[in-house]
Write a protein that binds this DNA or RNA. Structure first.
Length: 493
RNA sequence: GGUCCGAUGGCCGAGUGGCUAGGCUCAGCUCUGCAAAAGCUGCUACAGCGGUUCGAAUCCGCUUCGGACCUCCA
């Protein structure tokens, strides 16, 4: 595709991307609730929007990327007597709620760094925007779409739906929702089961609470995203993202609140939803007990893991599937990703050492670059991009084997394309570099060079026993010796 | 129960009316002292049954199976 197209959850169509205010793009993504460690499923969603962010930047858009931290403890259930998650954790671990928040925010950041997921432009917190949330509730009340009961304020969904469509994003019909709403205890304050809280009154034992015109309490879960996206991106902005599981009710409520507060007809132009990471066909979730932490993944210390996988292997694995499809986790798939990635990295190295050939080139690098771009333009299709990059790998290896001719400018151009698409867009870093920094120094390098030279001598003397012994011993230390016509070389695994 | 989505070769995964990705695995070959790497070749799939069409994995219908959401969830 010649221009970027995005699958819009709101219209259920693939649409040409047209920012409201080019070259500026506003993107809001629902971030984590920081009351526990993030698992791999969470990582997938943030990775999806990392790719969006990176690619928009490659297209020279000036992106303001806002991703929130939910640090208000929302209730564990939809009942008035439910305990809030952060408060619960704080009580159990005998910590201040904000200590819990800090701890898991730090963890979240560490995990994002581990997977090379870029920081957003603004990372606002719910607790930092209590004032704005209260102001927003006032507006919604003034517009007649909310009501107060005993110090709590609820959004009036039925009233709202009389004036505006409700349920467009998630494809719900308000009457169907009515029929399927389960009877829950403690909802007596709501006039209608579909209504949701904008502000909840808190009793004195509730740890996180703030004063408001309606008394002591805390904001409803959906409100912070409406308020913070409006504050930093405006009443109308380009892209809103999040996990598929947030579509309903969270995003539906967000839309209603935005419209309810600002009377803007359509707050977001493009809604994007990342699909779930599954394990044995089931959604990875804490409640299923099938989630891994990044640490378990890297060390392989989990009953579902055969071995550990590097962060870049995991990143690459996730990008081998399209963000809008479910992706099933398996050891086999991870291993395939590991090998594929290593092939790609090796080709990058080969490329840097390639001797240019004179005369005509036999690989169309311009078309290659265009196909990489076209893949991403088609709704960020990373699997197609990866498949295309492997065509480049084939050309590079072919050139090394003397079957493909690459001129000096072809090599430069290929390097540029790999740099742009593999490193900058897919965000795949070379893991070798970081390892070498830790375990390598000029001394060991000199020693290894010496050993390889000695082995070459042994080979020249047809002393295979010595040559093989050297290779075996080095192999045990994770160093691979490769022989070719031009001589021997060593690499760390 | 309601709403929606999916079912692709040994595995993972794109594609979505004709040209039938890619990675991994497996087998054979080339290269090599042997390996490794790389290259070449082979393995031709679209859940089932009907229908539309000159032509369908791709559109329509039904069936079977799986999943997500409907409650906090990325």
């Amino acid at each position: 595709m010649e221009a970027l197209h995005i699958s819009n959850s709101l219209t259920r169509r693939k649409e040409k991307f047209q920012p409201l205010n080019p070259p500026f793009v506003g993107m809001y993504v629902c971030g984590p609730t920081v009351y526990s460690n993030v698992h791999l499923g969470n990582v997938r969603t943030f990775l999806t929007f990392d790719i969006v962010y990176r690619y928009l930047q490659l297209l020279n858009f000036k992106v303001r990327y806002v991703r929130n931290i939910t640090d208000v403890g929302h209730l564990t259930g939809d009942t008035d007597d439910g305990e809030d998650k952060i408060g619960k954790k704080a009580r159990l671990e005998n910590l201040e709620p904000m200590e819990v928040v800090q701890q898991y925010t730090n963890d979240f950041h560490d995990v994002m760094d581990l997977f090379n997921i870029l920081r957003p432009s603004i990372e606002p917190t719910a607790t930092g925007h209590i004032v704005e949330q209260i102001e927003s509730i006032k507006k919604i009340l003034a517009n007649g779409y909310a009501y107060e009961v005993n110090g709590s304020v609820y959004f009036n969904v039925r009233k709202f739906s009389e004036d505006h469509p409700y349920g467009e994003l998630s494809g719900r019909k308000i009457d169907e929702l009515m029929n399927n709403t389960r009877e829950l205890d403690g909802q007596s304050e709501k006039r209608d089961p579909l209504d949701f809280a904008l502000w909840k009154a808190a009793n004195s034992s509730h740890l996180m609470q703030w004063p408001s015109p309606w008394g002591q309490g805390f904001p409803g879960w959906h409100l912070e995203c409406s308020v913070m996206s409006t504050k930093y991106l405006g009443e109308k902005f380009d892209i809103h993202g999040g996990g598929m599981d947030l579509k309903f009710p969270h995003h539906e409520c967000e839309i209603a609140q935005n419209i309810g507060a600002t009377r803007c007809d359509c707050p977001v132009n493009y809604w994007m939803h990342g699909n779930m990471l599954t394990v044995n066909g089931r959604k990875m979730a804490k409640s299923e007990g099938n989630g891994f932490t990044p640490e378990e993944l890297v060390t392989g210390n989990h009953k579902l893991l055969d071995k550990g996988y590097s962060p870049m292997t995991v990143r690459f694995f996730m990008l081998m599937g399209h963000y809008a499809s479910t992706l099933d986790f398996s050891n086999e798939a991870l291993q395939a990703a590991e090998k594929g990635l290593s092939k790609l990295e090796k080709a990058m190295e080969t490329l840097s050492k390639l001797n240019p050939s004179a005369g005509e080139g036999t690989f169309d690098v311009e078309s290659f670059e265009n196909r990489c771009r076209a893949a991403m333009n088609d709704d960020f299709n990373t699997p197609i991009l990866i498949a295309t990059l492997f065509e480049g790998v084939k050309a590079i290896n072919g050139a090394a084997a003397g079957l493909v001719a690459l001129r000096a400018e072809d090599i430069t151009s290929l390097q540029k394309t790999f740099q742009s698409f593999l490193r900058e867009v897919l965000g795949i870093q070379s893991e070798k570099g970081s390892q070498e920094k830790q375990s390598n120094n000029s001394e060991s390098e000199a020693l290894l060079d010496l050993i390889v030279t000695m082995r070459t001598k042994a080979k020249a003397n047809k002393d295979w026993a010595t040559a093989d012994k050297i290779r075996d011993v080095l192999s045990a230390y994770g160093i691979t010796i490769q022989d070719s016509k031009d001589g021997s070389s060593w690499t760390r695994n």
